[in-house]
Write a protein that binds this DNA or RNA. Structure first.
Length: 589
RNA sequence: GGUCCCAUAGCUCAGCUGGAUAGAGCAACAGAUUUCUAAUCUGUCGGUCUCAGGUUCGAAUCCUGAUGGGAUCACCA
């Protein structure tokens, strides 16, 4: 809508002899209850027009109508100048801009961005919280790609540490050689089972020690199983063959399980990092920081950074025994990633309980003057909680990712069978459709909400399939496809002479023209929710149009062709927008 | 205690860098199918935008403070 703002600048210059910047013009969509599609707010102009807002609007409106062929009319209400653009303009937009192959396709901007997400621990299966993380990360990566970035999707796997030793130890003690094959369990679930068993055993031993008179803290330290697990970790670090062998075996089980979950979820990665490779990194950066005076050493040999001037605390970056802490490792990994890809931006998709950690990490890297430090961003999202409280893997109070996805498919199946429109589908088509709809519902449910907000998930009230949901949008797409197929509509139709648009038609075109801007906004704010809410508006507008406007049943061939073109363009944008959310749209449902 | 995030209809959420009478979905109620897919559409009901100040022509939006909820402040990861 540049030409409107440009002409308005001209109008202000001509009428009031004042220079204003295009950015000073407040141009917005006209509210539905008024006539017009674009609105300019005239209050700010009254300062130099020295006239009432109404008169100012009228003056500018008249100028614009006179100046621009596209402007077919205007009205002024209070200080709002509502501009109507000619139907011919909107029809032309549909046939040229929107129907072009280049529509909403950004030129590569020459910039690289890494999106790190998922980042699972290999001691337990993925749960609902991970699902939000994965869907967010994948979608943000898609959106950045659509906005012109070269995107690297990275997964930093936390494959070592005390938590993995716990699973390993419990398996050794109580597993009796159980394997995914022998038990028929998915590998990650099998390993997760032993993580829970460890915790039960641990708790039992703590209880025993306490009844024997120890304090809770002592009991926690002295329980035999925790000592054994710590022992195992030391052996792992020393490269003990038996421990490493078990570790590799059990991790492999987990990876096979994860691969299956990722496939179902529809997320992918370009690059895997493993903490077993990176956990020793970062010590050279400690040296560097000491030399630069960013860090300081205390008498006991521990290394710190003082962030009190930045409103934070003093933070330990290296233990007195010279070993790394979490943040040391993360500094090293950041360096490693940058060396690998030299990306301009690096997005960490991690829950908001680590807000403080990333604030500190980024600040340190900036103070060290690290390349790429300015492009770091923590995409922080709220936890997914259950009505019963926080999810805890150890206690088994989690909504398992695999169970959840299977449950969604079941719900989709049940719904489809209730409606009873599955005839003409083969068995494999049916299965695929249930999966598409179930996942569509789940993904949309988690992505339509602003990432910052925490989600309260109630398993009893299953995720909706009607209303503001993924399936609603999928259904709209299927509907359009059905019409297009019946008409034998292929690609771009001949441009008709249709110039008397129905309001519903105009609304759709206006929405379609906004798509490129939506992608841009979503990319800048790393928010799939913007895309999700947009595509819902579009689907709603189309359904309204569909309900009371005949497409195939009109006699006038020009009108029919136009409506088919409009439908095809809508289907395309729905498809594309849903793809940015990682959601498939079916041809029929 | 310090810091950060959140608070909008009974429930789940939109509301972009301040703009018109604060919008959707669900739930409840009433309607629409001889018509291209009714997983749809239309209507009714539902609000002191947590509270109190401030900024200004104008505040759900920006600022300050309070209240409520969550997170975090380990020589854990």
């Amino acid at each position: 809508m540049n030409f409107i703002t440009e002409a308005t600048v001209k109008a202000v210059k001509h009428l009031y002899n004042t220079d204003i910047a295009a950015a000073d013009i407040n141009l917005q969509e006209t509210r539905k209850e008024f006539e017009g599609q674009l609105t300019i707010i005239t209050f700010p102009f009254t300062r130099f027009s020295k006239k009432s807002p109404e008169q100012t609007g009228t003056d500018i409106g008249a100028f614009l109508q006179n100046e621009l062929a596209e402007v077919s009319g205007f009205n002024v209400i209070k200080g709002f100048l509502n501009i109507s653009l000619a139907d011919s303009y909107w029809v032309n937009q549909l046939y040229t801009e929107i129907s072009s192959d280049k529509f909403a396709v950004s030129e590569p901007n020459g910039k690289k961005v890494m999106v790190e997400y998922s980042s699972p621990n290999t001691n337990k299966p993925l749960h609902l919280g991970h699902v939000r993380n994965n869907l967010l990360g994948f979608s943000v990566a898609e959106i950045l790609g659509a906005a012109g970035y070269e995107v690297i999707k990275a997964n930093l796997v936390n494959d070592r540490g005390i938590h993995i030793c716990k699973s390993m130890l419990a398996w050794q003690k109580f597993g009796n050689g159980e394997t995914p094959e022998s038990s028929g369990m998915k590998g990650d679930h099998l390993v997760g089972k032993y993580y829970v068993i460890f915790d039960q055993e641990y708790k039992k031993q703590i209880e025993e020690l306490r009844t024997a008179g120890q304090t809770e803290d002592d009991a926690k330290k002295n329980a035999p199983v925790i000592k054994e697990a710590q022992d195992m970790l030391l052996k792992w670090e020393a490269g003990d063959e038996a421990v490493i062998g078990l570790w590799k075996t059990m991790n492999k089980w987990v990876y096979t399980g994860f691969a299956e979950t990722y496939r179902k979820m529809g997320v992918t990665f370009d690059k895997f990092y493993y903490e077993s490779d990176t956990y020793l990194l970062g010590k050279d950066i400690i040296e560097e920081g000491l030399e630069k005076g960013v860090f300081f050493k205390k008498d006991d040999g521990s290394v710190w950074i003082d962030l009190t001037a930045d409103g934070l605390d003093e933070k330990l970056v290296l233990r007195s025994d010279g070993t790394s802490v979490y943040i040391t490792q993360d500094m090293g990994t950041a360096q490693l990633k940058y060396n690998d890809f030299h990306m301009d931006k690096s997005i960490y998709v991690v829950g908001n309980e680590q807000d403080y950690h990333f604030k500190v990490l980024f600040l340190i890297l900036q103070k060290l003057g690290k390349a790429g430090a300015d492009g770091l961003f923590h995409l922080s999202y709220g936890m997914v909680d259950l009505p019963s409280g926080k999810m805890k893997s150890r206690e088994g109070t989690v909504v398992d990712a695999d169970d959840l996805m299977a449950g969604m498919e079941d719900a989709a199946k049940q719904q489809a069978l209730d409606i009873g429109k599955m005839e003409g589908f083969s068995e494999t088509e049916k299965e695929h459709l249930y999966h598409t709809i179930g996942m569509g519902a789940l993904k949309y449910f988690l992505l339509k909400v602003d990432p910052k907000k925490r989600i309260l998930f109630n398993p009893q009230e299953s995720i909706e399939l009607q209303g503001h949901t993924g399936p609603f949008i999928q259904y709209t797409h299927a509907r359009i496809k059905s019409v297009l197929n019946k008409a034998g509509f292929k690609g771009k139709g001949a441009e008709g002479n249709y110039t008397a648009l129905e309001p519903a038609e105009r609304d759709i075109i206006v929405l379609l023209t906004q798509f490129p801007e939506i992608i841009k906004n979503a990319a800048e704010s790393y928010s799939p929710a913007i895309v999700a809410n947009y595509v819902y508006e579009l689907a709603k507008a189309y359904n309204k149009f569909y309900q009371d406007t005949p497409i195939l049943k009109v006699d006038d061939e020009n009108v029919k062709q136009f409506r088919l073109q409009l439908s095809a363009a809508t289907a395309k944008v729905i498809n594309k927008a849903m793809k940015l959310l990682g959601i498939e749209v079916p041809e029929r449902m």
